[in-house]
Structure formats: C-alpha cells, structure tokens
Amino acid sequence: MKGSSLPFDGTPEQEARLRAKLDELKNKQGALMPAMQYAQELYGYLPFEVQSIISEELNVPLSEVYGVATFYSQFSLYPKGKYQIGICLGTACYVNGSQAVYEKLQQLLGISSGECTEDKLFSLDATRCVGCCGMAPVMTVNGEVYGKVTPDAVEAILAKYHQRG
C-alpha cells in the first residue's frame, strides 16, 4: 500500500474539527478540494484514515479522493518531520551537483522526496529554486539555509539536528 507506514496519531479533537468542517461542506458543489485542503492543513498530510473520513462524509468514493490527492502536489500522503529538509534541484543547484546531495540525503535518511522518517524527525522534499542561487547547491532545514553543500557535508548537518532531538 502506498502512503505513510507510520501509525496514524490523529487526535479525537482533530477528527471532531474535520467532521464539523465536512458537515458544513457536505451539500455544496465542489466540496472535495476545500475539504482536502482543510484536512491537509489540520493533519499536515492525508493518510488513509483521513481520506476515509472525507470519502464517507462527502459520499465520494475513496478512489476519487485518492485520485485528487495524488494529482495535486499540494497534497501529501506523508506527514512532515520535526525538521523539514528541502533540497533544491533547480537549474543552478542542479548543475552544481545538488543531485548528489539529494542522493546522499535519501541514503542517510532512508526516504525519498515527500516522505518522512519513522521517528518523524526528518521529512525530505526535492524543491525548485529557493532564491539564493549564488550559494548553490542549497539545502534548507526548517527554513535555515545551507549553501555550497557537498555530499560529504550532509552527515554533519543531520547530526546537529539529531542531537537536538
């Protein structure tokens, strides 16, 4: 099965809020997108459990909810980590070797773009230009920018956040 293998840890409060929103949207035309956007905001991602609630409440087949979730890049099937890593694969970073940095990150974290580690510490996203091409290749951690990153430097950067926990 696609999607996060992490156990779902949504709270009853989150579910109550989601159901209330769905109740409000229920009989409106085109309710699916706003419902999914709300849920994405609320949970940070759209796991099976959340999509099932949306499907049930809006009376839309789960296959349709999932189809929309995988069509638009604004939706994610994976939660975000405590530390959200972005690695730029834009032109300037790419020609300066960001692909190798990306591969190193995937290897060390054991996840690909869009996914989250099992301890929910790190999530990884391959991004487009982050606006500081002069420092290419660039990676970001929760908005903190690391420039001229080499594959060898990645381990030390990750270790810093590991220590913080």
Binding site: F48, L62, S63, E64, V65, Y66, G67, T70, F71
Partner: peptide, 18 residues
C-alpha cells in the same frame, strides 16, 4: 467506486486507492 486514476502525467494509472 474502488478504482480510479492515480498520480498524474505519465505516471497516471488506473488502480485502487493507495
């Protein structure tokens, strides 16, 4: 409704949710 079009572009395929 157990099948749908998953993913997009060249990766689009008909399959079950998830």
């Amino acid at each position: 409704g157990v099948i749908g079009a998953n993913d997009r572009g060249f990766a689009t395929h008909i399959a079950c949710p998830f």
